[in-house]
Design a protein around this nucleic acid. Structure first.
Lengths: 139, 139
DNA sequence: CTTGACCTTCCCATGATGGGAAGCCCCACA
DNA sequence: TGTGGGGCTTCCCATCATGGGAAGGTCAAG
Protein backbone atom coordinates (compact mmCIF):
# COMPACT_ATOMS: atom_id res chain seq x y z
CA UNK A 1 0.00 0.00 0.00
CA UNK A 2 1.01 3.55 0.60
CA UNK A 3 4.63 4.51 0.82
CA UNK A 4 4.82 3.58 4.48
CA UNK A 5 5.81 5.66 7.44
CA UNK A 6 6.39 9.38 7.72
CA UNK A 7 8.20 11.50 10.25
CA UNK A 8 6.49 13.55 12.91
CA UNK A 9 6.57 16.77 10.91
CA UNK A 10 4.81 15.21 7.97
CA UNK A 11 2.35 13.51 10.30
CA UNK A 12 1.62 16.90 11.82
CA UNK A 13 1.00 18.43 8.42
CA UNK A 14 -1.12 15.48 7.34
CA UNK A 15 -3.36 15.45 10.41
CA UNK A 16 -3.49 18.99 11.68
CA UNK A 17 -2.06 17.94 15.03
CA UNK A 18 1.15 19.79 15.91
CA UNK A 19 4.31 17.79 16.44
CA UNK A 20 4.34 19.09 20.00
CA UNK A 21 0.90 17.71 20.63
CA UNK A 22 1.66 14.37 18.97
CA UNK A 23 4.54 13.89 21.40
CA UNK A 24 2.33 14.98 24.27
CA UNK A 25 -0.41 12.52 23.31
CA UNK A 26 2.16 9.78 23.17
CA UNK A 27 3.66 10.74 26.50
CA UNK A 28 0.28 10.68 28.22
CA UNK A 29 -0.64 7.38 26.63
CA UNK A 30 -3.46 8.69 24.48
CA UNK A 31 -1.83 7.20 21.42
CA UNK A 32 0.57 4.28 21.23
CA UNK A 33 4.30 5.03 21.24
CA UNK A 34 5.39 5.56 17.66
CA UNK A 35 7.80 3.26 15.91
CA UNK A 36 11.33 4.65 15.71
CA UNK A 37 14.07 4.68 13.12
CA UNK A 38 17.49 3.43 14.11
CA UNK A 39 18.43 6.97 14.99
CA UNK A 40 15.36 7.60 17.13
CA UNK A 41 13.07 9.45 14.76
CA UNK A 42 9.39 8.69 15.26
CA UNK A 43 7.62 7.03 12.34
CA UNK A 44 3.92 7.14 11.56
CA UNK A 45 2.11 4.66 9.36
CA UNK A 46 -1.30 5.26 7.84
CA UNK A 47 -3.10 3.70 10.82
CA UNK A 48 -1.31 6.11 13.15
CA UNK A 49 -2.31 9.06 11.01
CA UNK A 50 -5.87 7.80 11.10
CA UNK A 51 -5.81 7.78 14.90
CA UNK A 52 -4.32 11.27 14.95
CA UNK A 53 -7.07 12.56 12.66
CA UNK A 54 -9.60 10.96 15.00
CA UNK A 55 -8.08 12.78 17.95
CA UNK A 56 -8.00 16.02 16.04
CA UNK A 57 -11.64 15.77 15.06
CA UNK A 58 -12.66 14.93 18.62
CA UNK A 59 -10.70 17.91 19.95
CA UNK A 60 -12.44 20.09 17.39
CA UNK A 61 -15.71 18.88 18.84
CA UNK A 62 -14.60 19.96 22.28
CA UNK A 63 -13.91 16.58 23.85
CA UNK A 64 -11.30 16.56 26.58
CA UNK A 65 -8.28 14.36 26.20
CA UNK A 66 -9.76 12.04 28.82
CA UNK A 67 -13.00 11.76 26.85
CA UNK A 68 -10.98 11.02 23.75
CA UNK A 69 -9.21 8.26 25.59
CA UNK A 70 -12.60 6.63 26.11
CA UNK A 71 -13.69 7.30 22.56
CA UNK A 72 -10.54 5.75 21.16
CA UNK A 73 -11.07 2.69 23.32
CA UNK A 74 -14.60 2.36 21.97
CA UNK A 75 -13.36 2.91 18.45
CA UNK A 76 -10.89 0.09 18.81
CA UNK A 77 -13.40 -2.17 20.51
CA UNK A 78 -15.23 -3.87 17.71
CA UNK A 79 -17.69 -5.31 20.22
CA UNK A 80 -18.67 -1.92 21.63
CA UNK A 81 -22.31 -0.95 22.06
CA UNK A 82 -23.12 2.19 20.15
CA UNK A 83 -25.18 3.21 23.19
CA UNK A 84 -21.95 3.82 25.06
CA UNK A 85 -20.66 6.17 22.41
CA UNK A 86 -23.96 7.96 22.25
CA UNK A 87 -24.09 8.39 26.00
CA UNK A 88 -20.60 9.82 26.05
CA UNK A 89 -21.40 12.20 23.23
CA UNK A 90 -24.65 13.37 24.76
CA UNK A 91 -23.09 13.91 28.15
CA UNK A 92 -20.52 16.07 26.41
CA UNK A 93 -23.34 17.94 24.73
CA UNK A 94 -24.93 18.75 28.09
CA UNK A 95 -21.59 19.97 29.28
CA UNK A 96 -21.36 22.21 26.24
CA UNK A 97 -24.90 23.44 26.79
CA UNK A 98 -24.10 24.24 30.40
CA UNK A 99 -21.07 26.25 29.40
CA UNK A 100 -23.03 27.99 26.68
CA UNK A 101 -25.69 29.00 29.19
CA UNK A 102 -23.08 30.40 31.54
CA UNK A 103 -21.52 32.48 28.79
CA UNK A 104 -24.95 33.53 27.53
CA UNK A 105 -25.83 34.81 30.97
CA UNK A 106 -22.69 36.89 31.11
CA UNK A 107 -23.22 38.26 27.62
CA UNK A 108 -26.83 39.17 28.32
CA UNK A 109 -25.98 40.92 31.54
CA UNK A 110 -23.21 42.90 29.92
CA UNK A 111 -25.37 43.84 26.98
CA UNK A 112 -28.05 45.10 29.32
CA UNK A 113 -25.54 47.13 31.24
CA UNK A 114 -23.97 48.49 28.08
CA UNK A 115 -27.39 49.44 26.78
CA UNK A 116 -27.85 51.67 29.82
CA UNK A 117 -24.43 53.23 29.49
CA UNK A 118 -24.38 56.31 27.32
CA UNK A 119 -20.73 55.74 26.47
CA UNK A 120 -19.61 59.30 25.98
CA UNK A 121 -16.96 61.47 27.59
CA UNK A 122 -18.74 61.65 30.93
CA UNK A 123 -17.67 59.37 33.75
CA UNK A 124 -21.10 58.11 34.81
CA UNK A 125 -21.31 54.44 33.96
CA UNK A 126 -23.87 51.82 34.98
CA UNK A 127 -21.39 49.10 34.08
CA UNK A 128 -18.93 50.22 36.71
CA UNK A 129 -21.80 50.81 39.12
CA UNK A 130 -22.88 47.24 38.68
CA UNK A 131 -19.38 45.88 39.19
CA UNK A 132 -18.92 48.05 42.23
CA UNK A 133 -22.09 46.59 43.70
CA UNK A 134 -20.31 43.27 43.97
CA UNK A 135 -21.46 39.69 43.48
CA UNK A 136 -25.09 39.30 42.42
CA UNK A 137 -27.60 36.51 42.84
CA UNK A 138 -27.65 36.17 39.06
CA UNK A 139 -28.41 37.66 35.64
CA UNK B 1 -17.16 54.03 60.53
CA UNK B 2 -17.41 50.30 60.55
CA UNK B 3 -15.46 48.14 62.93
CA UNK B 4 -12.30 48.44 60.86
CA UNK B 5 -10.18 45.79 59.34
CA UNK B 6 -10.70 42.05 59.06
CA UNK B 7 -8.35 39.17 58.39
CA UNK B 8 -8.06 37.41 55.06
CA UNK B 9 -10.41 34.58 56.02
CA UNK B 10 -13.18 36.97 56.92
CA UNK B 11 -12.50 38.98 53.79
CA UNK B 12 -12.82 35.80 51.77
CA UNK B 13 -16.13 34.97 53.39
CA UNK B 14 -17.37 38.53 52.99
CA UNK B 15 -16.51 38.83 49.30
CA UNK B 16 -16.70 35.35 47.86
CA UNK B 17 -13.06 35.51 46.81
CA UNK B 18 -10.95 32.71 48.29
CA UNK B 19 -8.03 33.61 50.53
CA UNK B 20 -5.77 31.96 47.99
CA UNK B 21 -7.04 34.19 45.24
CA UNK B 22 -6.83 37.31 47.36
CA UNK B 23 -3.14 36.63 47.91
CA UNK B 24 -2.71 35.90 44.22
CA UNK B 25 -4.41 39.14 43.20
CA UNK B 26 -2.14 41.02 45.55
CA UNK B 27 0.96 39.24 44.27
CA UNK B 28 0.13 40.09 40.66
CA UNK B 29 -0.66 43.68 41.52
CA UNK B 30 -4.34 43.51 40.71
CA UNK B 31 -5.13 44.83 44.16
CA UNK B 32 -2.95 46.92 46.45
CA UNK B 33 -0.86 45.10 49.05
CA UNK B 34 -2.95 44.71 52.18
CA UNK B 35 -2.08 46.40 55.44
CA UNK B 36 -0.44 44.07 57.96
CA UNK B 37 -0.68 43.54 61.68
CA UNK B 38 2.53 43.58 63.72
CA UNK B 39 2.70 39.80 63.30
CA UNK B 40 2.22 39.90 59.56
CA UNK B 41 -1.48 39.10 59.19
CA UNK B 42 -3.13 40.85 56.27
CA UNK B 43 -5.86 43.31 57.15
CA UNK B 44 -8.76 44.39 54.97
CA UNK B 45 -10.77 47.55 55.47
CA UNK B 46 -14.17 48.19 53.93
CA UNK B 47 -12.66 49.82 50.82
CA UNK B 48 -10.55 46.73 50.23
CA UNK B 49 -13.58 44.49 50.54
CA UNK B 50 -15.34 46.73 48.05
CA UNK B 51 -12.54 46.24 45.55
CA UNK B 52 -12.59 42.50 46.11
CA UNK B 53 -16.32 42.37 45.50
CA UNK B 54 -15.73 44.35 42.30
CA UNK B 55 -13.17 41.82 41.17
CA UNK B 56 -15.44 38.95 42.06
CA UNK B 57 -18.33 40.39 40.12
CA UNK B 58 -16.14 41.04 37.10
CA UNK B 59 -14.82 37.48 37.21
CA UNK B 60 -18.40 36.24 37.38
CA UNK B 61 -19.02 38.16 34.18
CA UNK B 62 -16.13 36.38 32.55
CA UNK B 63 -13.59 39.20 32.43
CA UNK B 64 -9.98 38.11 32.47
CA UNK B 65 -7.73 39.35 35.23
CA UNK B 66 -6.08 41.66 32.73
CA UNK B 67 -9.43 43.13 31.74
CA UNK B 68 -10.23 43.61 35.39
CA UNK B 69 -6.99 45.47 35.83
CA UNK B 70 -8.24 47.93 33.22
CA UNK B 71 -11.71 48.07 34.75
CA UNK B 72 -10.31 48.80 38.18
CA UNK B 73 -8.18 51.58 36.75
CA UNK B 74 -11.26 53.09 35.13
CA UNK B 75 -13.21 52.64 38.33
CA UNK B 76 -10.58 54.57 40.26
CA UNK B 77 -10.27 57.22 37.60
CA UNK B 78 -12.97 59.73 38.37
CA UNK B 79 -12.23 61.50 35.10
CA UNK B 80 -12.79 58.42 32.97
CA UNK B 81 -15.02 58.50 29.92
CA UNK B 82 -17.84 56.01 30.20
CA UNK B 83 -17.21 55.25 26.52
CA UNK B 84 -14.02 53.49 27.51
CA UNK B 85 -15.81 51.23 29.92
CA UNK B 86 -18.52 50.53 27.40
CA UNK B 87 -16.00 49.67 24.71
CA UNK B 88 -14.19 47.29 27.00
CA UNK B 89 -17.45 45.62 28.01
CA UNK B 90 -18.70 45.28 24.46
CA UNK B 91 -15.44 43.87 23.23
CA UNK B 92 -15.72 41.30 25.97
CA UNK B 93 -19.25 40.58 24.82
CA UNK B 94 -18.05 39.84 21.29
CA UNK B 95 -15.46 37.55 22.74
CA UNK B 96 -18.19 35.76 24.67
CA UNK B 97 -20.36 35.55 21.58
CA UNK B 98 -17.50 34.09 19.59
CA UNK B 99 -16.92 31.43 22.20
CA UNK B 100 -20.63 30.71 22.37
CA UNK B 101 -20.78 30.23 18.62
CA UNK B 102 -17.86 27.82 18.72
CA UNK B 103 -19.49 25.76 21.45
CA UNK B 104 -22.85 25.91 19.68
CA UNK B 105 -21.31 24.51 16.55
CA UNK B 106 -19.84 21.61 18.47
CA UNK B 107 -23.11 20.91 20.26
CA UNK B 108 -25.14 21.02 17.05
CA UNK B 109 -22.78 18.67 15.25
CA UNK B 110 -22.81 16.21 18.10
CA UNK B 111 -26.56 16.34 18.41
CA UNK B 112 -26.92 15.61 14.72
CA UNK B 113 -24.55 12.69 14.98
CA UNK B 114 -26.26 11.38 18.09
CA UNK B 115 -29.61 11.65 16.37
CA UNK B 116 -28.37 9.27 13.71
CA UNK B 117 -26.92 6.84 16.20
CA UNK B 118 -29.37 4.18 17.30
CA UNK B 119 -27.57 3.79 20.60
CA UNK B 120 -28.25 0.16 21.29
CA UNK B 121 -26.06 -2.88 21.84
CA UNK B 122 -24.81 -2.98 18.26
CA UNK B 123 -21.41 -1.50 17.44
CA UNK B 124 -22.40 0.55 14.39
CA UNK B 125 -22.09 4.20 15.28
CA UNK B 126 -22.18 7.27 13.06
CA UNK B 127 -20.49 9.25 15.81
CA UNK B 128 -17.37 7.12 15.68
CA UNK B 129 -17.57 7.06 11.91
CA UNK B 130 -17.51 10.83 11.87
CA UNK B 131 -14.59 11.02 14.25
CA UNK B 132 -12.71 8.42 12.24
CA UNK B 133 -13.19 10.51 9.14
CA UNK B 134 -10.91 13.09 10.69
CA UNK B 135 -10.92 16.89 10.64
CA UNK B 136 -13.82 18.43 8.77
CA UNK B 137 -14.25 21.70 6.98
CA UNK B 138 -16.90 22.61 9.53
CA UNK B 139 -20.28 21.88 11.12
C1' DC C 1 -0.12 26.66 79.18
C1' DT C 2 -2.49 24.00 75.89
C1' DT C 3 -5.47 23.39 72.05
C1' DG C 4 -7.45 24.38 67.79
C1' DA C 5 -8.39 27.59 64.38
C1' DC C 6 -6.26 30.84 61.89
C1' DC C 7 -2.44 33.04 59.46
C1' DT C 8 2.19 33.12 56.86
C1' DT C 9 5.24 31.58 52.83
C1' DC C 10 6.68 28.18 49.54
C1' DC C 11 6.15 24.54 46.29
C1' DC C 12 3.37 21.70 43.26
C1' DA C 13 -0.59 20.41 40.18
C1' DT C 14 -4.14 21.19 36.88
C1' DG C 15 -5.16 21.02 30.92
C1' DA C 16 -3.74 21.69 26.52
C1' DT C 17 -0.82 24.19 24.29
C1' DG C 18 3.34 26.83 22.61
C1' DG C 19 8.35 28.56 22.92
C1' DG C 20 12.94 27.72 22.92
C1' DA C 21 17.66 25.66 23.83
C1' DA C 22 21.15 22.12 23.12
C1' DG C 23 22.45 18.56 20.45
C1' DC C 24 22.00 14.79 16.93
C1' DC C 25 20.61 13.35 12.05
C1' DC C 26 19.88 13.39 7.14
C1' DC C 27 19.97 14.93 2.48
C1' DA C 28 21.43 17.61 -1.31
C1' DC C 29 24.78 20.13 -3.45
C1' DA C 30 29.45 21.64 -4.46
C1' DT D 1 33.96 14.15 0.95
C1' DG D 2 32.54 18.20 3.43
C1' DT D 3 29.13 21.48 4.67
C1' DG D 4 24.79 23.86 5.40
C1' DG D 5 20.21 24.00 6.53
C1' DG D 6 16.28 21.96 8.03
C1' DG D 7 14.21 18.38 10.77
C1' DC D 8 14.40 15.49 14.67
C1' DT D 9 15.36 14.41 19.76
C1' DT D 10 14.75 15.58 24.86
C1' DC D 11 14.23 18.84 28.53
C1' DC D 12 12.66 22.89 30.76
C1' DC D 13 9.60 26.83 31.11
C1' DA D 14 5.26 29.67 30.44
C1' DT D 15 0.48 30.24 30.02
C1' DC D 16 -4.34 31.25 33.06
C1' DA D 17 -6.83 31.04 37.30
C1' DT D 18 -7.26 28.07 40.68
C1' DG D 19 -6.67 24.65 44.48
C1' DG D 20 -3.88 21.47 47.67
C1' DG D 21 -0.79 20.89 51.10
C1' DA D 22 3.40 21.27 54.17
C1' DA D 23 6.03 23.67 57.70
C1' DG D 24 5.82 26.93 60.94
C1' DG D 25 4.16 31.29 63.50
C1' DT D 26 -0.08 33.59 66.01
C1' DC D 27 -4.10 34.27 68.56
C1' DA D 28 -7.95 33.64 71.67
C1' DA D 29 -10.57 30.73 74.62
C1' DG D 30 -10.43 27.44 78.18
Amino acid sequence: MSAGAVTIGEAARATGVSAKMIRYYEETGLIAPAARTASGYRLYAEADLHALRFVRRARDLGFSVEDIRALLALWHDRARASAQVRTLALSHVSDLRRRIEALEGMARTLENLAAHCVGDARPDCPILDDLAAGPHADS
